[in-house]
Computed example of a mutant assay.
Amino acid sequence: MIKKKILIAEDEARIARILALELEHEGYETEIAGTGKEAFAAMQKGDFDLVLLDVMLPEISGFEVLRRVRMEDETTPIILVTARDSVYDKVNGLDHGANDYIAKPFEMEELLARVRSAIRTSEAQANKRGSGNIRIVGDLKADLMTRVVLKDNKEVELTKREFDLLVFLMEYKNQILTREQLLDAVWGFAYSGETNVVDVYIGYLRKKLDSKGESSLIHTVRGVGFTMKGTKDEH
């Protein structure tokens, strides 16, 4: 079973480390970000089951990180953690899309209970929305809402970007997609990074999805782009 992954966005190293140790003891996988910029970058690259987000982060405030994240991701549960306990801060956080709010100092058991509750609620909502959101190509299955990928009934762990790329290929199976189309769809029109990023991520997917002795699920069309082949009755 894949562990639930939690991002701890906290600039006080001692507190961040304590939170990480407690959460890991409870069976979670953790990652720490010490600034708002680091937290936002981590949330764009990684696929987290929950985020503990301190409001008073350097470089970019927790409220601003929350606002930016919610423009792209409405579902990842986010719990704001702060030393401030004013009604304004609570309302501001909830209005910007936070799922919960806890003020320092807090009891660790209460925080862990809130984490469990937020993840349970998120999973229940995802399951409720999930009907009709399954994509299948061969022995590969992707759930658009829970973001779970199964290959031959075994779960495959993908990053957010890998998942988005895979789903786009599955959505347009049997069609040849150019690198430009994939770049625009998955990375966005404003992407200004390395142009070979599509090939790099196709390589990541092949490494995680392809079985020894079998041809790759994702086919390269020389000089054009890539395609994923499936049958007409798959959805």
Rank of each mutant, 00 (worst) to 15 (best):
E59I: 02
F48W: 11
L166W: 08
V156R: 06
F48K: 03
Q125I: 14
K90T: 03
F48V: 03
P105F: 03
A124Y: 08
M170N: 07
K154E: 15
R120P: 03
V156K: 09
F106S: 06
E72R: 12
D100W: 06
I60P: 07
E72V: 14
D73G: 03
A126N: 15
V87W: 00
S122P: 02
T121K: 14
T146S: 15
L52W: 05
S131R: 15
K151P: 09
E74K: 13
I102M: 00
L144S: 13
E123I: 10
P105A: 06
A98C: 08
T82I: 09
D54I: 03
L66V: 00
N153R: 14
V69L: 14
Q125K: 15
M56G: 07
I119H: 10
I134W: 06
L111P: 11
L94W: 01
D89L: 05
I60M: 13
V137E: 07
V55Y: 03
V115L: 03
D139P: 10
N153V: 10
A124R: 12
T146V: 02
V137P: 05
P105G: 06
V149M: 05
V69C: 06
D85V: 01
R161A: 13
M56F: 02
A98S: 07
I119D: 12
E162C: 07
D139E: 13
R129H: 11
V149T: 13
S131G: 09
I60Q: 05
R120W: 02
I60K: 11
G62Y: 01
D47S: 15
H96T: 10
G93F: 01
I78Y: 00
L144P: 12
I79M: 01
R68I: 02
A142P: 11
Y101L: 03
R129D: 14
V137W: 00
L150C: 04
I79P: 04
A103C: 14
V137Q: 04
R67Y: 09
S122G: 07
K45F: 09
K141Q: 14
L50D: 11
D73N: 14
V65Y: 01
V148C: 06
L140D: 09
D95M: 13
P77H: 00
E74Y: 10
V91D: 01
P58W: 00
T82H: 00
P105H: 05
T76L: 01
G97S: 07
G132I: 07
R116W: 02
L144E: 14
M56T: 06
D95P: 01
E107L: 10
H96P: 02
D143E: 12
L111T: 12
M56A: 12
I134P: 04
M145Y: 05
R114C: 09
R116L: 04
E109Q: 14
D49H: 13
V87C: 00
G130D: 15
M145G: 07
I134S: 09
N92Y: 02
R135N: 11
K141Y: 08
A113I: 03
I102W: 01
N133C: 11
G132N: 08
V137T: 12
K154N: 15
L158Q: 07
K104S: 02
A126M: 14
I78A: 00
E162I: 01
V137L: 02
V137F: 05
I60C: 04
G130H: 13
E64F: 02
F163V: 04
T75A: 12
